[in-house]
Simulated assay, not measured.
Amino acid sequence: MQKTRETVLEIDLGALAHNYRYLREKAGKGVKFLGVVKAFAYGNDEVVIAKKLSALGVDYFGVAYTSEGVSLRKAGIEKPVLILHPQSFNFEEIIENCLEPSIYSEFVLKEFIKTAERLGQKDYPVHIKLNTGLNRLGFSEPEISKVLEHLSNTTAIRIKGLYSHLAASEDWKEREFTLGQINRFRKMAFEIVNAIGYHPLLHITNTSGIVNYPEAAFDMVRAGLGLYGFGNDPEIDKHLKPIGTLKTIVSQIMKLQPGDTVGYNRAYKAQEEITIATLPLGYADGISRQLGNERSGVYINGYFAPLIGNVCMDMIMVNISGIACEEGDEVIVFGKEQPVTEFAKQAGTISYELIAGISQRVKRVYLPE
């Protein structure tokens, strides 16, 4: 494999395919599969990822905001797209682009019906979000009657899906709570199903839920982080392959003498003669300032080089004393040598935040399946 000559996020589409097939098998036959590609496909590339998943046979896509769904449509993605957190300002744009909104409150329901009626829609597909315990968005059980009342007074919309979201499906200590969510969802969903007289898509499981609660697959499952190689559980992680490797290069090498300092605020002081390297990426690329001052490091020619000094906007410095390397050599920030889960732990965060935070100015390169 050719070594990089600049900062890149290398995306392995073969690993993506592996993860999809593993989760699809766990979901079971006859169950639809929704791939979550919000936030630039968790910091990768939503268009490339969505096109690959479409080719692999994914049934649905999920994004957070309307603009993300519009981006998929402009890229030629024709599969159904669920907008998980739409705002009323975007309802007309949702309809114009044949996107499917999540309806999570009475205000949103009334406003979407109003927009759909004004635009002459009939049976426009929507997904009703039910709050079963995560307590972010969604209708509570006592509000179901209001949902049914509004639905009975219009032909502009039709329920395409009923769904909820598990709060702790990866945590076995919260199994009782998770089972309670699943049972609450089943009860609420079938109250609506019985009232409307038809069966929409029911979906509640995320990546951990797909693996840990197969009985809750219902009609469709939703996978986000698992597609990108992480399952929030070592037992799940060992079956998945992280798709991203963040690479950069050595820009400059210099010697420091005892007492010399490094970077802004002189945050690091050499206690002995050392050799350091400057690398061309920083917090503007998603490398948190929390990772500086020897809290983390990178790999150069197979050896660990700790970050020293404060992380700068466009640069980090590392101690390469004892490491044989030259200017222009490849550096692995995270990948096989250093899993992103470990790198995230060093920053006091989770893999979600770290990979989603990789700047769009970092060039993406793709390894084919």
Rank of each mutant, 00 (worst) to 15 (best):
A305G: 13
S359P: 07
Y264T: 11
E10I: 00
I358K: 04
L246I: 02
P125V: 10
I192L: 07
Y268W: 09
G43C: 02
H239N: 08
L225D: 01
R184V: 02
L148D: 01
I243K: 02
A270Q: 09
I77F: 08
V362C: 03
A27P: 02
N194G: 15
Q181N: 13
L82D: 01
S145N: 11
K110N: 13
I249E: 07
I144R: 07
V36P: 04
K122L: 06
N206F: 06
Q87Y: 13
G209A: 02
L201A: 12
Y283P: 04
N212L: 07
N19P: 00
R361A: 09
D45Y: 00
E93N: 08
T115C: 14
V221S: 04
I236V: 10
A55R: 01
F177K: 15
I157V: 15
V221L: 05
F230T: 02
I316H: 03
H150W: 08
I276T: 09
N153V: 09
G309I: 08
A64R: 08
A156E: 03
L227T: 01
L354S: 04
S152Y: 10
I103G: 03
I243A: 01
N97A: 07
G138R: 08
K238D: 00
D237L: 10
A284W: 05
S145C: 06
E330I: 09
E96Y: 03
K74S: 10
T261L: 12
T341M: 10
A270G: 03
H85Q: 12
P258H: 11
E106P: 01
T278K: 10
I83V: 14
Y268K: 02
N97M: 02
R175I: 13
Y198F: 15
A217S: 14
L307G: 05
I316Q: 11
L246Q: 04
F139T: 02
T207E: 08
Q290Y: 13
E143S: 05
K255A: 12
Y20N: 05
I103S: 05
F177Q: 13
D171R: 07
L137C: 00
A223M: 00
I144A: 05
E25N: 01
R186M: 07
D123V: 01
E330L: 11
K32A: 14
F304V: 06
V311M: 11
M1P: 01
I49V: 14
F91Q: 08
F343E: 04
R361V: 05
T349C: 08
K129R: 12
I77C: 04
V211N: 03
R175H: 12
E337D: 06
I192N: 08
K160T: 02
P101A: 03
T245R: 06
P242S: 02
I192W: 10
Y299T: 12
E326M: 11
P234T: 05
G348D: 13
G62L: 05
T248P: 04
E143N: 06
C98L: 07
C312R: 11
V362T: 09
C312V: 02
V37C: 07
K146R: 12
K241I: 00
